[in-house]
Amino acid sequence: MSKQTILVQAGTGKTGKRVARLLREQGHTVRIASRSGEPRFDWAEESTWGPALAGVDAVYVVPLDATGDEHEQLTRFVATATAAGVRRLVMLSARDIDTFAAVNSLVAERAVRESGVAWTILRPGWFNQNFDEDYFDAAVRAGEVLLATGDGLEPFIDAEDIAEVAVAAFTQDGHDGQIYDLSGAELLSFPQAVGIIAAELGREIRVVDLEPAAYAGQMAGQGMPLEFAELIARLYQRIREGKEAHLSDGVQRVLGREPRTFAAYVKNAVAAGAWN
């Protein structure tokens, strides 16, 4: 495909920053959607959407949140984008979203599918990078990780793999109208994943496992917004019940190789100074 101008939402996030880097390496023009960008983009101010989309060929779409209001907002954004001349949308969604109504991204997915332009939807599982760039980082550093997943298994996926799939959808033929379920190479429990990190670091990291309802209450008591704590607890309940214990072949189909392993991610993260 010819060189494009691509707007990347969540361009400093776990997948967005990698998508932006890979696109730039291929010579595409990348515009980061942010309140400090030029032109400025703010989800809360729809007047900023048009200027940010001016001259843009494609958008990496990352929904703002997992609640209905934000997804209705994304529906309006998609309409604005197509009206502005955007010809391709690649959306970051979530694995098994169509069987888990509590995280109802289906409204946003439908807006993308019905946009009238080329589209690809990515449905990944839990990111490896949640352990060092986001959710679990402080807990791993402190040496105690609070969970509610029991021995349930999850096919953790590397954000680098997600980004490579997204870039392929932007730059290669054959991905229009596709929904790719993305997983890592193996099934691991959360305690096993923490154990791999602990072994690589050479120190003990304690895992404390609660029932999901108790987890939500404790996290809310520590200052986490209750709605978010309850959402995470519901996700943990699915894992605890074995509902996420299956692999997907999206990475293999798009990239023609196996996904990165969790152990390889940990080695690279430690080498880069994670959890120091």
Rank of each mutant, 00 (worst) to 15 (best):
S2V: 12
Q4F: 06
T5W: 05
A10Q: 04
G11S: 10
K17V: 13
R18A: 08
G27C: 04
H28M: 01
V30H: 04
A44K: 12
E46S: 15
S47R: 13
W49A: 03
P51A: 11
A52S: 14
L53I: 02
A54T: 12
A54D: 14
V56T: 14
V59N: 01
V59A: 01
V61F: 07
P63S: 09
L64Q: 12
D65S: 13
D65Q: 07
D69A: 15
R76A: 14
V78G: 01
A81N: 05
T82P: 02
A83G: 15
A84M: 08
G85M: 06
L92Q: 12
A94F: 12
D96F: 09
D96T: 08
I97T: 15
A101K: 11
V103T: 09
N104P: 15
G116Y: 06
V117Q: 04
W119Q: 06
R123V: 05
R123M: 10
P124Q: 12
W126F: 13
W126S: 08
F127I: 04
N128R: 03
N128E: 07
N130V: 04
E133A: 12
Y135D: 04
Y135A: 02
F136A: 04
D137V: 08
A142D: 14
E144F: 05
V145M: 02
L146V: 11
L147K: 02
D161M: 09
I162Q: 11
V165M: 02
A166M: 11
A169K: 00
F170V: 04
Q172D: 14
Q172I: 03
D173A: 15
G174P: 11
G174A: 09
H175F: 09
D176R: 10
L182R: 10
A185H: 13
I196N: 04
I197E: 02
A198T: 08
A198I: 07
V208G: 08
D209G: 04
P212H: 01
G217T: 11
M219S: 02
G223E: 03
G223I: 10
L226W: 05
E227Q: 10
A229V: 05
E230R: 14
L231P: 00
E241T: 07
E244P: 00
A245W: 04
H246Q: 15
S248R: 08
G250L: 07
R253F: 11
L255C: 11
E258K: 13
A263D: 12
K267V: 12
K267N: 09
N268L: 12
A272Y: 02
A272L: 07
G273Q: 06
W275D: 01
